[in-house]
Measured scan of single mutants.
Amino acid sequence: GSVVKEKKEKALIEVRPYVEYYNELKALVSKISSSVNDLEEAIVVLREEEKKASEPFKTDIRILLDFLES
């Protein structure tokens, strides 16, 4: 629970300088966080969101995924 939350919060802070739609990304992460149990599940849902998103938000999600998977 809290470790996953920390990882996601740290990821958002780390990617902030590189993303165009930070507030939207943060809102998406919050929405996903409330419906998943762990980081792996969150990553799966983020990948689905990435497929549906259009640029440049798609790239923002990709940047976040790269950080979460590192």
Rank of each mutant, 00 (worst) to 15 (best):
K52N: 12
L68K: 00
P56M: 04
I32L: 04
E24Q: 06
L68D: 00
E69V: 10
I13D: 14
Y21W: 05
A11C: 14
I43V: 09
R62E: 02
V4L: 14
K31T: 12
P17E: 14
I13M: 09
E20I: 13
S54M: 09
E9D: 12
N37L: 06
S30R: 05
K51H: 12
L28F: 02
K10E: 08
K5G: 11
V45D: 06
N23T: 10
P17F: 07
Y22T: 02
R62D: 02
I13P: 01
R16T: 05
L68Y: 04
L46P: 00
A11H: 03
S33A: 13
S70I: 10
R47L: 08
I61M: 03
K26L: 15
E9C: 15
E20R: 06
S30C: 14
V4W: 11
E50K: 07
K10F: 07
E69H: 10
D66C: 14
S70E: 11
R47Q: 09
V3M: 07
L39C: 15
L46N: 00
P17S: 08
K7I: 15
Y21F: 11
G1H: 08
S35I: 13
S2T: 09
S70L: 09
E9Q: 07
A42D: 04
E6W: 01
A53I: 04
V29I: 09
L25S: 00
E20F: 07
E6T: 08
L25Q: 00
K8F: 15
R16E: 15
E40Q: 11
F67P: 00
A11V: 09
I32M: 04
V36R: 04
E40N: 09
T59Q: 12
S33D: 12
Y22L: 04
D60E: 02
K10Q: 13
L12T: 01
K52M: 12
G1Y: 00
V36T: 12
E41A: 09
A53S: 08
V4N: 12
E14W: 01
V29T: 03
S30V: 12
E6V: 08
V15S: 03
E24I: 04
K51Q: 10
N23W: 11
V3S: 14
E69Y: 08
A27H: 08
K26G: 04
S30K: 06
S34E: 14
L64I: 04
A27P: 00
V4C: 15
T59D: 05
V29W: 15
A27N: 09
G1D: 13
K8E: 14
E14Y: 03
E41F: 05
R16I: 15
A42I: 15
E49A: 05
S30L: 10
I32F: 03
E20W: 03
E20N: 06
V15Q: 02
K58Q: 05
F67T: 06
R62W: 04
V29S: 02
L65N: 02
D60C: 12
V36K: 04
E14D: 08
R47A: 08
E20Q: 13
K31Y: 08
L25A: 00
F57Q: 03
L25K: 00
F67R: 05
A42F: 15
K58S: 12
S30G: 11
K31A: 13
V3Y: 00
L68T: 01
E40K: 09
E55P: 10
R47I: 11
F67Q: 05
V3R: 06
V19L: 05
G1V: 13
L64S: 00
S34F: 06
S35V: 12
D38H: 09
A42H: 05
Y21K: 06
E48R: 08
K10C: 15
Y22E: 03
L65Y: 02
R47M: 10
K5C: 15
E55R: 03
R16M: 15
E55Y: 11
S54R: 07
K52G: 07
S54H: 10
V29A: 04
I63M: 05
F57L: 02
K7M: 15
K58H: 03
R62T: 05
S54Q: 12
L46W: 01
I43E: 03
N23R: 04
N23M: 13
A27G: 05
F67M: 05
Y18I: 15
D66S: 12
D66E: 12
L65K: 03
V15P: 01
S33L: 13
R47H: 13
V15W: 01
E40A: 10
S2N: 13
F57E: 01
I13S: 13
R62L: 06
E40S: 10
V29N: 01
S70Q: 11
E14M: 04
L64G: 00
E69Q: 11
Y21E: 05
S35Y: 13
L28C: 02
E9K: 04
V29H: 02
K26Y: 14
V36Q: 04
K8V: 15
K8D: 07
I13Y: 01
L28Q: 01
I63V: 07
D66K: 10
E55T: 04
L46F: 04
E41Y: 06
L68I: 08
K51M: 11
E48H: 07
S54F: 11
S33N: 06
T59I: 04
V4R: 04
